[in-house]
């Protein structure tokens, strides 16, 4: 077994070179390079944790925003409903008033027209009686040679007209 057979001759060399090599590893890698690697890992982990935290916060903010928006939307919807209802009522009222005014006007016009018609009819009737009375006077004077007064003729015509 060379480990034992060569022990006396090689231990100093083995120990020396091990210490040199391990020392190099320790100081160059362990003390030199490793802190950078570790800080990079830590920094990355921190960055990830921070980013996750920020994302979480952003999500919470978004949730709150959404909630607020929902409430505001509900409020606005209710407001809009009220507005629409009010407008509807207003419009109905206006329509009713306009309709009322219009129908009043129409009635008025109709009544006036009816009155005019009645007057015209009465006038026409009067004229017809006058003409008929005159005609009756003429007919009587021609046929019977009688002179009938205008009042008698008119009364006779009126009696005939009334009895139809």
């Amino acid at each position: 077994m060379p480990q034992i057979a060569q022990l006396a001759a090689t231990y100093a060399s083995q120990i020396f070179w091990l210490l040199v090599c391990f020392g190099l590893v320790f100081f160059v890698i362990g003390r030199g390079m490793l802190p950078g690697v570790v800080s990079t890992i830590d920094q990355r982990n921190k960055q990830i944790a921070d980013d996750l935290g920020a994302a979480e916060a952003a999500r919470a903010a978004a949730d709150a925003e959404e909630q607020a928006w929902r409430i505001a939307e509900g409020k606005q919807r209710a407001q809009a409903h009220d507005l629409i209802a009010a407008a509807k009522a207003e419009a109905a009222r206006n329509t009713q008033a306009a309709l009322d005014a219009a129908s009043a006007r129409i009635e008025e016009t109709t009544a006036a027209a009816e009155a005019r018609i009645a007057a015209a009819r009465a006038a026409a009737q009067g004229e017809v009686q006058d003409v008929a009375a005159q005609a009756a006077q003429d007919i009587v004077s021609r046929l019977a040679g009688l002179s009938v007064s205008a009042e008698d003729a008119r009364g006779a015509v009126q009696g005939v007209l009334a009895h139809g």
Partner: peptide
């Protein structure tokens, strides 16, 4: 103490 560069040292 001899500290010759050996094959062991080489591989270290």
């Amino acid at each position: 103490h001899n500290i010759a560069f050996t094959n062991s040292a080489l591989w270290m």
